[in-house]
Amino acid sequence: MPGEPAKKQRRGEYQVSLEENEGKLPQKKFYRQRAHANPFSDHSLTYPKCPEEMDWASYYPAYAVQNQDEQKQEQRTESESHDQHPVPPEDAPSKAISKPVEIADIGCGFGGLLFALAPKFPDTLILGMEIRTSVTSYVQDKVRALRAQNTSTSSFQNVSCIRANTMKFLPNFFSKAQLSKIFLCFPDPHFKQRKHKARIVSYTLNSEYAYVLKPGGMVYTITDVKDLHEWMVGHLEKHPSFERVKDEELESDACVEIMRQETEEGKKVERNKGEKFVAVFRRMKDPPWP
């Protein structure tokens, strides 16, 4: 594409200026990217083989667990008998964090929701997941800046963002029943019928959401596209692991208001005086085997 290299260069120069200036907030205009990424293609994604291999400490450094000597001692004696898994060298930084991520914002875009949720749930780790590279970089740069601005209060240490295709790799990041909340805010509508499997909510994909959610955990959805709203409601209602949360119950749920007001898309819809459709679902306990 003509103009691509120039764009790249501008971005590069901008990145440098950002790195030199720790607390400076990133500007969205340097991170714009084509609206739709194809969730079926391979991209050049990096993802952990399994949640245990994820380097969480680099995303939440304030929560990194120090390698404890005791722990290592244990590992060593075990490995002597099996000689299978080599013990990491003494100074290898730990990848583990002291508590697991519990809130995921799937397709977080520019991260408006994340930065609003972070102070509301200061003790909960929140992760934005986004398939578009430069949009992810924006959120990551913003996280860095906000952390630098708030060193005295340690705010925003609990929020981070990762590039991921959640439709394929959610179980690579989260283990069974790890999450308490999943947000699906203003997902791409994929109007074309043949693209319906590209939608972020479908009967079969709902099984993966149920897998990573704790029983009692919640899925929050919001969209301005009525058809998509009905689609999401229909597919979640049909899935035996989910039940819809009644509107009365939602009134006392701060997350719903944040989702309406703080997402970038939510703000756009507000400006255009569009309608917003909200639906929240609870993950039920698995029934006994038949």
Partner: peptide, 16 residues
Amino acid sequence: PAASILTVHSGSNRKV
């Protein structure tokens, strides 16, 4: 139609 014209869409969504 799957959405009303009022709603906010990206250019490509609007085209579809």
